[in-house]
């Protein structure tokens, strides 16, 4: 009886809120058509699917990846993916929050605007462009960096072809491109901090640094977490940045799951295998997000998702 009454109420509520559902309909339709219908395609991971063959082969693709011919490359790519994307995520959070805080401290509105404008610019460049700029700048033959080194009497360095240089330079370039853009969301959050809180903190005799830690950071911690967790979902998708900066000399150390999947799937036409790699990647991504959100829920008591 109780259940029936509950159900009645729910039905009434749904009927009452029909306008909300109507407003949500376009979103739902798009998601179903463009995301869910193609998702049936993950079944390709269990097929030998090439331009000529469509054969169900069970877990063969995964066996090949996990323990078969492609295993060394696959696990290497997996390790690299985690290393590059998680390091990058941590760096990005630290740098973007720091720069946003410092920008917020600039007194002159004009200066702040100018710095912001310039910081955001590289984000508008595509990766192809960014990579060609830096390949040019870091060139051992014509690049400015090596020109300067030569003036100082140092032998030119082929930065992008050496493992020990490639990794730090990769992080530098990614951060150069995206740090400014990453600050936007934090700046928006910072602008929402109630000025009275600062006044109150100042009354209590808190210095600037103290204010940052006791007022500013707590105020934007939700935003930081949301952005962090959402970005974790994308962590496994790291692709273009690596793809455009890769070269044969650093393959082993730079191959990530997506570049591997792209080569095998798109370039070699082995779509089943490519999908298998993608599927594995998606599961890891889902695991990361749900795991982090669970921790977040334990600590803060509310979910981001």
């Amino acid at each position: 009886m109780v259940k029936a009454r509950d159900w009645d109420r729910t039905r009434r509520q749904i009927r009452n809120d029909w306008m909300y559902y109507a407003m949500f309909a376009p979103v739902l339709v798009f998601v179903i058509i463009f995301n869910y219908v193609p998702m049936v395609g993950v079944s390709l991971a269990f097929y030998k699917f090439t331009p000529f063959a469509r054969k169900f082969i069970g877990l063969d693709n995964f066996a090949d990846l996990f323990v078969g011919i492609r295993a060394p490359q696959f696990w290497r790519a997996f390790g690299n993916t985690l290393f590059y994307s998680i390091t990058n995520l941590v760096l990005s959070t630290i740098l973007s929050v720091t720069v946003a805080l410092l920008l917020n401290e600039l007194v002159s509105r004009k200066a702040k605007g100018l710095v912001q404008t310039i910081l955001y610019l590289p984000h508008f460049m595509s990766w192809v462009v960014v990579s060609s700029i830096f390949t040019l700048i870091l060139s051992p033959q014509v690049g400015i960096v090596n020109n300067v080194l030569q003036e100082l009497g140092i032998e030119p360095i082929y930065f992008l072809a050496q493992q020990k240089w490639w990794t730090p330079i990769y992080f530098f370039i990614v951060r150069w491109k995206e740090t400014g853009w990453g600050t936007i969301i934090y700046l928006a959050a910072l602008s929402g901090v109630n000025p009275e809180l600062y006044e109150a903190a100042e009354m209590d005799g808190a210095g600037r640094l103290r204010q940052v830690f006791s007022v500013t950071l707590p105020a934007i911690v939700t935003t930081i977490l949301i952005v962090f967790i959402l970005n974790l979902g994308k962590v496994m998708n790291i692709f273009e940045s690596v793809f455009v900066l890769q070269n044969p000399n650093v393959y082993n150390a730079t191959d990530v799951l997506t570049t591997f999947a792209y080569r095998v799937g798109v370039q070699q036409g082995n779509y089943g295998m490519g999908t298998a790699i993608d599927l594995f990647k998606s599961f890891i991504g889902l695991f990361l997000v749900l795991g982090t959100d669970a921790i977040n829920r334990k600590i803060r008591g509310s979910s981001v998702l």
Partner: peptide, 22 residues
Amino acid sequence: LELLPELNNIKTQYVTKIVFGQ
């Protein structure tokens, strides 16, 4: 033919490492 492109990547990598003196 399925495995060739990937093997060629491996080859290129080691040819490069050797020629570059690494």
